[in-house]
Design a protein around this nucleic acid. Structure first.
Lengths: 377, 377
DNA sequence: TATATTTACGCAAACGATTGAGCATTGCGA
DNA sequence: TCGCAATGCTCAATCGTTTGCGTAAATATA
């Protein structure tokens, strides 16, 4: 996909931006007008690179450019915003910036935006729907030119209304079913299939799934994939779904409960990296070994997963591509004043490591192990 | 420390913000003036909660409030900004949002800012000084009311000039020596002492240190603490300092080189979580065990460090306090139109886990171990 | 020479709020 | 009945740009 975006910034300002000293707040078009003897209109036109279009005499242009440069003039962006009702600003809404997965996405989008000369306002909704709503209102009031959002809420009306009336919205990671809002996400369904197939191939049939925010689309899709994979293997009736939050604590508590069951699962499928961490903690505390006693596979990639013992098998999402694609779609929409309807699901990949092995023999399954010795297989 | 900050937002807008529907972009003070028959001035004063101060008749006030509410009026923030030259916006400058440590800080500051009704513009400077400079200029041009920064560069003039002339600046994590700029940081020197003392207490004398961005203040202080702790133990001459970047790759490469030396260190002190990850990878690849063959201690806390095998001993920084304090200092400065000169170093804490033990006996030190079996001790 | 066109810019009205100063109207005391 | 203060508002300037329209001077065309 190639998208051509014409940057409308002008070289005069650019030169200034890269200059050493700060913008001279005292200098305005009016003061420059006084200095040079030309009108503010003319100065404006020269400084926005429209001198040819408006047939400004080259000599005049040079005088103005010189005066602007010497006085360290830079335009008042707020005034520009008011006049043009453009802000060169985008809003980025995330459920949790501290979550490594979303931090990655934030980092990429912020940098992409910078390339396109946009500044990013970041909202951390804390998975709270009320916070999300009011924060989005703030973004709108601040007249952002576009929004990239991983919504926590379930109702799409707000975002659709914004996209229809105010500015382009691109969803990332999470999206709404029955909505035409554009999104860039991972094929979460496929990801689950890959994860569960991997467990089944290793002989597991007692696979418990610890889910996250129940109403979020990724969670729903992952659950659907989980069920479908079980179905395919003819063990749909063995489905076990617990939990309700993308948090370490949720992973920990639900794992504790799972391990306490008389029919303990032989494998756990954690629907996020945070859940996986909680699960690991609970498993270790119980004195069980991964993968000898219980296998573990997780959604989300994170650098540290390779460094744990055992290293964690996982479904990796292409965060960089997602961030870049979402940015491109957004800036294309802004540029062309159109609404895009692209709905993309990128393929996840299975990173197979050492947290999955054959299930323990049935007769030892309920014993548990209380030594702290661990074997890496 | 108690700081009282009077929020100047008014309840009318608040009520609107939490309302369901979006701000009606068509409605302005002028249009409301037409509708109600009062002037824009009066409407403005009522809507900014100044009806008593300006002796607006209660009936008038109610008429105006009703009209505003019914038409879903919300003020044009950009126009307010231009008129009042306040933006209720802060800038947050970080070297790397993807780094879990800074992601934590970002998350906290964004949420704190929200509490004070500020929106946060986030910059990811990518540890690049040029990016940092131009991004900060952008923030200034956008007239942020204040800046919280973890600067990558070494020259403080830019930030000092901003703090003097334009808006309050609070540094976080990193700061400048010989500068009166306020900061909130960790006592990195003390952190190093704690880390090295821990190693020395365990009998280590061959302690190599892998550093990060050499010119950053935290790095300098950590190095100073490292040297000082060695000095105190009378083994200053054994100091080994390598590396130059807060990255996993740097940790990996430098560890590889260290392990290749004829006199292999018995312990590695990694100056960041990312460096530690790289070190672990290199150590594992070499077939050595932590801590049996080589001990490891790291700066920075991260949730996953407890889940690795062995769990990693580390120096934890109080990120939440740092973020909250920096926010408080900033908003206090903005509110009081003063410049604060507080320079705070919070105490780090040692989280002692299983990556540090006695050094291996000298006669086996150079052997290396090539089995992949690991023991947790 | 009269008219048309081009050149090179200026005027003034936006954008939508805030705010100091001012101006009717009413009430009250003397 | 007059003066004065309090009441309850409006006027108009301002923040710093951008931009549609206009126009004087210079040049080209008929």
């Amino acid at each position: 996909m190639q998208i051509i975006i014409i940057l409308r910034t002008n070289f005069i300002y650019l030169r200034h931006t890269s200059a050493l000293s700060l913008r001279n707040m005292k200098e305005t078009l009016a003061s420059l007008a006084q200095k040079t003897g030309f009108s503010a209109s003319t100065i404006s036109r020269v400084l926005t690179g429209k001198s040819e279009e408006y047939r400004i005499k080259p000599e005049t242009r040079d005088i103005i450019l010189k005066a602007a440069a010497e006085s360290n003039y830079a335009p008042n962006i707020i005034a520009q915003n008011l006049r043009t009702s453009r802000t060169d600003t985008i809003g980025l809404l995330l459920p949790s910036v501290a979550n490594p997965y979303f931090a990655d996405i934030a980092s990429i989008i912020i940098k992409e935006a910078r390339k396109f000369r946009y500044t990013t306002m970041v909202i951390d909704s804390d998975e709270n729907e009320a916070t999300e709503k009011s924060s989005v209102s703030t973004l709108i009031a601040r007249q952002v030119d576009g929004i990239i959002a991983a919504p926590s809420g379930t109702q799409h009306e707000l975002f659709e209304e914004i996209n229809r009336k105010l500015c382009p919205v691109i969803l990332i990671d999470r999206y709404f079913v029955d909505s035409s809002l554009p999104y860039v996400s991972t094929n979460n369904y496929l990801g689950s299939i890959m994860a569960i197939d991997n467990l089944i191939m290793n002989g597991h049939t007692e696979i418990a799934c610890i889910q996250g925010a129940i109403n979020s689309m990724p969670n729903k899709k992952r659950i659907a994939g989980y069920l479908s994979a079980l179905e395919k293997a003819g063990i749909r009736d063995k489905a076990t779904i617990v939990g309700n939050e993308f948090s370490e604590q949720n992973g920990y508590l639900e794992t504790k409960l799972l391990l306490n069951r008389t029919e303990r699962p032989t494998a756990i499928y954690a629907l996020s990296n945070t859940i996986a961490l909680g699960a690991i903690k609970a498993i270790k505390e119980t004195g069980l070994n991964i993968p000898a006693d219980i296998s573990l596979i997780s959604f989300d990639d994170s650098i540290y997963m390779d460094y744990m013992t055992p290293s964690i098998s996982r479904i990796s999402q292409p965060t960089e591509e997602m961030g870049k694609l979402a940015s491109k779609l957004l800036f294309e929409s802004i540029q062309n004043k159109t609404r895009c309807t692209t709905q993309l699901e990128l393929a996840p990949s299975l990173i197979s490591r050492n947290s999955v092995s054959l299930p323990p023999r049935p007769d030892v399954r309920q014993e548990g192990r209380h030594d702290t010795e661990q074997r890496q297989q």
